[in-house]
Amino acid sequence: MRRRPVGYLFILPAGLLLAVFLYFPLAYSFMISFTRWDLSATRTFIGLDNYRAIIASSEFWNSVLYTFYYVLGVLPFSLAIGLGVALLLRDSNMKGVGFFRMIYFMPVVTSPIAAAMGFSWIFNTQLGYANYVIESMGGEPVNWLTNYNGIFQLLFERFGIQLPHILQGPSVALTVIILLGIWQNIGYATVVYLAGLQGIPQAFYEAARIDGASPSKILRKITLPLLSPTTFFLLIVFAILSFQVFGPVQVMTPQGGPLQTTSVIVFRLYQQAFSYYRFGYASAMAFLAFSMILLITLFQMKFVERKVYYE
């Protein structure tokens, strides 16, 4: 590849738009994170006080823990199931494939607010379908959205083991929100994987088949490596987006969940900004979250992207 300064011209339109609508607001928020500001005309510079207060607050670290639970719960299942469905739906000559593709895509297009409302009906403790199914199979109903116990703790309790706080896992309420996240992400991952699968030249498969490779070998040696740019994209994007989960939490547990166990970072941040009108504090939280996400992403780029197969 030759050096082509014309590259700058290609990124200029996006760069300009981002500068006006994102970098300027970003810089603005960064400045605000060193002040006390309630959206009025006066702003007081207070240095690092906001950052100090946040780092000293146990509520913040709890919200970090819950956020990690959410990300770690949503990511692997969304990717794995999404890939599985995409592999099943790749053959466009299969009968009804268009119909199935549409169905698996529907959760993605449903308004997130409506989806979250639907989920809260399904997991309603007294009257929801989830408990209805459990009870009709002879099980005990679960108080989904008011249960603050960590799911790993609930599991180990049966053997009389008490896990340390950090290992107790997401509360039952947060688990329901994780399920909603997976439900919405599957469709997204499926569609992206389908686009990725269709970019793989048929010739590779034909060559492999002539060589007599088994289907599982084809999957491991051809499909997965050639899909790795797609997987990498989904991994990064899901990590970034689920780290910032907010909407479903707000709709399903507007009070922050049982004993605040669904109060993820952005929920706390939103509360500080738009309920308490502490924009300085909220901005500082945003930048702490930002640095965590940036670190995770850089880590993924450094260590995971090595394994990605590009042409």
């Binding site: 309603n124 403790t125 007294q126 108080n143 008011t146 507007p254 009070q255």
Partner: peptide, 18 residues
């Protein structure tokens, strides 16, 4: 008063006559 219901669930149960 129901301990196992969220505020919203309690409202729904009330509306449904539970």
């Amino acid at each position: 008063s129901p301990r196992d219901l969220t505020v919203e669930e309690g409202m729904q149960s009330f509306m449904m006559g539970r």
